[in-house]
């Protein structure tokens, strides 16, 4: 059910511009791996490469042992903002991956309504994206992504455009919703606290590759916030983040 990624000596970037070199990374099936890093360090590029939207510029990028050559419904992506189709209602947006898989209409509709209920928008199904708040739109996007039953979910700063309060609520919702899916999750953010709350492991990405990977003690348990173990994990992440890369 869950997908595993294996990256070896990978170079990432757009065209001739290389953003990351010598990247080695293993994403274990079913885990939530959060990637943090300064802006412009290649986090989004990494996700787009895993999604198959960008070719890697060298090395091998494998999903369950097979090279990634293009996008696949196995590896769905949640974008930062405005990825919903504005002319479709929330429900019809969530139905889209099901329509692509040619699932019959009544079943499509039921599944979409069920997922909208899961993200707390059961009563907003008929609304168009512009009638929803930013947080609601991201919940619809999450429902749409999960409705396609992907084996991996790639999330590109999905809460980056939200205010702090909505952001906190969205993080709790995500943690709740992820309990019901076996999918492997790769989550990109620049927020270390978000990373420590959501992830099983947190990787620090830099142009020279992965600097460190920290195991999160007691992942997704709000009660552990601020305990010595989590504080220690936070310190080591921050140290890795702000360490100067060797010239």
């Amino acid at each position: 059910m869950s997908l595993a990624f294996h990256l070896e000596d990978v170079s990432l970037g757009h065209g001739s511009e290389i953003a990351v070199r010598g990247l080695d990374l293993d994403v274990r099936p079913g885990e939530v791996l959060v990637v943090v890093g300064a802006s412009g360090c290649g986090k989004s590029t990494l996700l787009r490469t895993l999604a198959g939207l960008l070719p890697s510029l060298g090395g091998s990028v494998l999903a369950d042992g097979a090279p990634i050559t293009g996008p696949s419904p196995d590896r769905a992506m949640v974008f930062q903002d405005d990825a919903l189709l504005p002319w479709r209602s929330a429900r019809r947006n969530v139905e889209l991956p099901l329509a692509i898989r040619r699932i019959p209409r009544p079943q499509r509709r039921a599944t979409a309504e069920q997922w909208l209920g899961q993200v707390g928008l059961g009563d907003q199904a008929h609304r168009r994206p512009r009638q929803l708040s930013g947080g609601m739109r991201q919940r619809v996007q999450l429902a749409r992504t999960l409705a396609g039953e992907p084996r991996a979910v790639l999330m590109d700063e999905p809460f980056g455009a939200l205010d702090a309060q909505t952001r906190g609520a969205m993080q709790r919702l995500l943690v709740d919703v992820l309990k019901n899916t076996p999918a492997t999750v790769v989550f990109v953010t620049h927020d270390v606290d978000e990373a420590l709350f959501i992830g099983d492991r947190v990787a620090v990405l830099a142009p020279g590759g992965i600097r460190t990977i920290v195991d999160v003690p007691e992942p997704r348990d709000p009660a552990t916030r601020g305990t010595p173990l989590v504080r220690a994990a936070r310190e080591s992440l921050l140290a890795a983040l702000f360490q100067r890369s060797p010239a």
Binding site: R48, P71, F79, I100
Partner: peptide
């Protein structure tokens, strides 16, 4: 058209025709 609409449909498994019918045509209307 914003590229993210097409990217989203492609990561759901949509091919060229699906992008044309679900994104390009309605988006350009």
């Amino acid at each position: 058209l914003p590229a993210v609409w097409e990217d989203a449909v492609r990561t759901m498994g949509g091919g060229r025709w699906r992008v044309l019918i679900s994104v390009v045509l309605p988006g350009a209307l």
